[in-house]
């Protein structure tokens, strides 16, 4: 159980502060009237992938609990998904069309606000999952663990250097 939870929680623990950094930058972008392309362009996909890893681990390791949890978290998750799509559209306008698109300011505001919705949605989902899953009795798909461990170690070794280099760009933001 603990190992299975580790695969769900660890990427989420990394994702949340990085999402908050993106939220901070999105509001700063409006306040200062400049984009933060150097950081966002480079890290956007990787940050988002951490969330995907967490979702994947929960869905397939706790497959027994998924039918129980689904009705509880459907609304916040689908809201979050809608928010992701709109956020991506706003992001593209904000960071690819910086200073040229007529909807620039509106898109920047939408992009910033989307983070608030996402954080609220995430909290709702985490609360829903934590209170719905019968943790003492839920059966874990333990056959997957033998693939997740070596996969995680190999992947971390492969990505360690580029990840360190990419997130360094945050230091250059004043």
């Amino acid at each position: 159980m603990n190992i299975a939870l580790f695969f769900v929680i660890f990427p989420l623990v990394l994702y949340v502060p990085l999402l908050l950094i993106e939220m901070n930058l999105s509001f700063l972008s409006i306040a200062r009237g400049r984009s933060f392309n150097d950081y966002m362009h480079v890290t956007w996909e990787t940050t988002h992938t951490l969330l995907i890893l967490s979702v994947i681990a929960f869905v397939w390791l706790f497959n027994d609990a998924v039918p129980m949890v689904a009705p509880v978290v459907a609304l916040p998750l689908l809201l979050a998904a809608l928010c992701f799509l709109l956020r991506a559209a706003a992001y593209i306008i904000v960071y690819y069309e910086w200073g040229t698109h007529p909807l620039q300011r509106f898109a920047s505001q939408c992009f910033a606000v989307s983070h608030l919705v996402l954080v609220a949605g995430l909290l709702w989902v985490v609360y829903g999952v934590a209170t719905t899953v019968p943790w003492n009795t839920v059966v874990i798909q333990s056959s997957l663990i033998i693939y997740l461990w070596p996969g995680a170690i190999a992947t971390l070794v492969i990505v360690a250097f580029p990840v360190a280099q990419m997130y360094k760009t945050l230091a250059s933001i004043d």
Partner: peptide, 15 residues
């Protein structure tokens, strides 16, 4: 599950 790792490698090296 393994697709998640493959995708992480893609995302990191793309960035």
């Amino acid at each position: 599950a393994l697709e998640g790792y493959a995708f992480l490698i893609e995302a990191v090296f793309l960035g």
